[in-house]
């Protein structure tokens, strides 16, 4: 369980690092090739951790299978994970929008717009967040049994 949590953390930390690295590439920071390497390495780390957390464990299949093909335990688990991830995703999107509003208001990098890496990251996040929540809880069900 601890190992899976570490993998989930590394997965999203690499995703964040990729966005930061490509942001520096976008604003044309000197030595941008270093940021390119960091960004591309982060994508590899995201891919490797995705494979071990979501693919090999079957969590991806669980969260992306039609509900009529799931049994009652799997349905309960996926519904709970989807509702949790909906709440988290909404908060993340609102924080990003707030950051954009604040940066334009304070004139910090006003030319920066919603970039392709950011949109890609949000699409990735929306698809993996339910599975990550399941992986984080390691199969524990939402109904706490005494």
């Amino acid at each position: 369980m601890k190992r899976r949590r570490i993998q989930v953390t590394v997965n999203y930390a690499a995703l964040l690092l990729m966005n930061i690295a490509f942001y520096f590439v976008y604003i044309g920071k000197s030595a941008s090739h270093i940021y390119d390497v960091i960004g591309l390495t982060s994508i590899v780390v995201v891919g490797v951790t995705f494979r071990s957390v979501h693919w090999k464990t079957g969590i991806w299949k669980l969260t992306h299978t039609k509900s009529k093909e799931l049994d009652e335990r799997e349905l309960t688990l996926t519904h709970w994970a989807l509702s949790q991830s909906y709440a988290w995703f909404a908060v993340i999107c609102l924080v990003i929008m707030f950051a954009f509003a604040l940066s334009s208001r304070m004139n910090i990098c006003p030319q920066y717009t919603i970039s392709i890496p950011l949109v890609g990251s949000l699409i990735y996040l929306s698809h993996t967040l339910p599975g990550s929540i399941i992986a984080w809880k390691a199969g524990k069900l939402p109904e706490d049994t005494e």
Binding site: D71, E72, R73
Partner: peptide
């Protein structure tokens, strides 16, 4: 009519 993992649970 369930997944075999559910039987384990």
């Amino acid at each position: 009519g369930v997944n075999f993992q559910t039987v384990g649970y």
